[in-house]
Amino acid sequence: MNNPYAQYQMQNIATAPPEKLLIMLYDGAIKFLKQGLKALDDKKYDDFSYYISRTQDIISELMVTLDMDYEISKNLYQLYDYFMYRLIHGSVKKDRQSIEEVQKHLEELREAWVQAAAVKEKSIKDEG
C-alpha cells in the first residue's frame, strides 16, 4: 500500500477508540445512503443497489458487534433489524421514503453517539 492517504486512513482506523469506530460506521452508512438516493434520482439502479448493499453491510456489522448482555443492545438490535427490513423494501420497490427514513434514524443515532463520546471524553479529562 503505497498511497499515503490510504495508509493514514488505515492507521486512523486501527488506533481509533471504539466510540470513534462506531461513529465512523454511522458516517459510512449515511454517506452510502446519500449516494444511493442520488443514484436513484439519476435512475442508476445498479449504483443504487450497490450503495444500499454497502449500507446493509455496515448495519450487519453494527448488529454483530452488539454486546447482548445489555438491554440497550437488544433494543438497538431490533432497531437495526428494522432498518434492514426498510432498506430491503426500499431497494426492491425503489422507494425513496424507506431509504430516507433509515437515513434520518441513522443521523439521529449518530448524533446521540457523538454526544455520548463527548461526555466520556470530558469525564476522562476531568479524572486526569
Rank of each mutant, 00 (worst) to 15 (best):
L33K: 04
K34T: 14
K34E: 08
K34P: 11
K34M: 11
K34H: 14
Q35V: 10
Q35L: 15
Q35S: 14
L37E: 08
L37R: 14
K38S: 10
K38L: 12
A39G: 05
A39F: 04
A39W: 02
L40C: 01
L40A: 01
D41M: 10
D41V: 07
D41P: 03
D42K: 06
D42M: 08
D42F: 06
K43S: 13
K43W: 01
K44R: 14
K44P: 00
D47C: 09
D47Y: 06
D47R: 10
F48H: 05
S49G: 06
S49E: 12
S49Y: 09
S49I: 10
S49F: 10
S49Q: 11
S49W: 05
Y50E: 13
Y50N: 13
Y51C: 12
Y51M: 10
I52A: 02
S53W: 07
R54P: 08
T55R: 01
T55I: 01
Q56T: 05
Q56W: 00
D57G: 13
D57L: 10
D57C: 09
I58N: 03
I58M: 05
I59L: 02
S60P: 00
S60H: 10
S60F: 09
E61V: 11
E61P: 11
E61G: 15
E61S: 14
L62P: 07
M63Y: 09
M63G: 13
V64Q: 08
V64D: 11
T65R: 09
L66Y: 02
L66C: 05
L66T: 04
M68L: 15
D69A: 09
Y70Q: 02
E71L: 04
E71Y: 06
I72M: 13
K74R: 08
K74F: 06
K74S: 09
N75T: 15
N75F: 13
L76T: 06
Y77E: 14
Y77D: 13
D81M: 12
Y82G: 11
Y82E: 12
Y82Q: 12
F83C: 08
F83N: 04
R86W: 06
L87K: 05
I88N: 08
I88E: 09
I88S: 07
I88G: 01
I88Y: 04
H89Y: 13
H89S: 13
G90A: 00
G90R: 00
G90C: 01
G90Y: 01
S91P: 00
V92K: 11
K93G: 06
K94M: 08
K94Y: 03
K94V: 02
D95R: 06
D95E: 12
D95Q: 06
D95K: 07
R96W: 02
Q97C: 02
